[in-house]
Design a protein around this nucleic acid. Sequence first.
DNA 1: TTGTATGCAAATGTTTTGCAGAGCC
DNA 2: GGCTCTGCAAAACATTTGCATACAA
Lengths: 166, 166
Amino acid sequence: MHSHPKHAHPHESAGKISRGEPSKTALENSLGILRDLGHRITGPRKALLSVLTSEHGPFTAEELHCKLSGKGGDPVTVYRGLAALEEANLVRRCDFGDGVYRYEYNSGEHHHHHIICRSCSSVQILEVCFADALENLVRQMGYSNVTHTLEIFAICKACQKTAPNT
Amino acid sequence: MHSHPKHAHPHESAGKISRGEPSKTALENSLGILRDLGHRITGPRKALLSVLTSEHGPFTAEELHCKLSGKGGDPVTVYRGLAALEEANLVRRCDFGDGVYRYEYNSGEHHHHHIICRSCSSVQILEVCFADALENLVRQMGYSNVTHTLEIFAICKACQKTAPNT
DNA sequence: TTGTATGCAAATGTTTTGCAGAGCC
DNA sequence: GGCTCTGCAAAACATTTGCATACAA
């Protein structure tokens, strides 16, 4: 991996964002937002957003490329599409510390975290977040624009039965 | 970056570890632990641990290699030394989401987190951790061996003056 | 028609691995 | 002396970039 100038610090400027008329689908709203930002709506991007809005992930770039086989074109196109989506705040990039980035659709409503099974790598969403108090503390220390990343690693129930002492 | 089989999930089996007689220095104790695990005490490793125990980092492999110029040998040796230290739980690897891993000495006593300035990349240690409650919740959900990573990103005081709207 | 997105190829940069020789215990 | 660690070279791998072409607006 190299320098990631635009990605150096997760969650930057993330937050609640309006997704337009609630009668529209997440896909339609997202395409609208992308268009309003001056981006073009192409086949590969529509396919990419379609997967991201229907399945919640998070997915690696490679996984996304596989899911799009044919429709999504080149892996490079997936990377560039994801970069555009992240810049538009439609996608959030997460880092499970294994050297591969993962991407998930940013509904703009709930700030959540992940419970990742160390054994089977399954991911469960955790809606609760206790870190807000921590952010407030950091603000009191004089910092601004405070955000955070929090990932939880554990052994899930199923894997405990399979390999109890992992 | 590639697959990191031994590193896929941070903080695994981390925890309070005894560092031997308190009269000895962190360096001496660490070398003892390493020796007891069947590792050999070599110049490069002594130099590496010496830096890690005296300055608290976290440092990238490249930074460590620079600090050791001459003494530390090849960058590969630094990587291998760090891997041994991490396996021995003497070093903790952290991931700031910028594509480079950082390493810091694990005193074994305090579990802490980092406040990373998005602008100048300075790192401040934050001793408080609110995530213990979160870990308990996750345990109640049926998970075992629960650990977590938490990194805080913000703009530090100094940088707020320089570029107020970053 | 004009500028953005795509696709291929190639580069980048971090981390890992293979192997012969050096060094610790 | 046996087994580990080192050093060099080379590989592995995710991600980024350059450039000519295709395509949305």
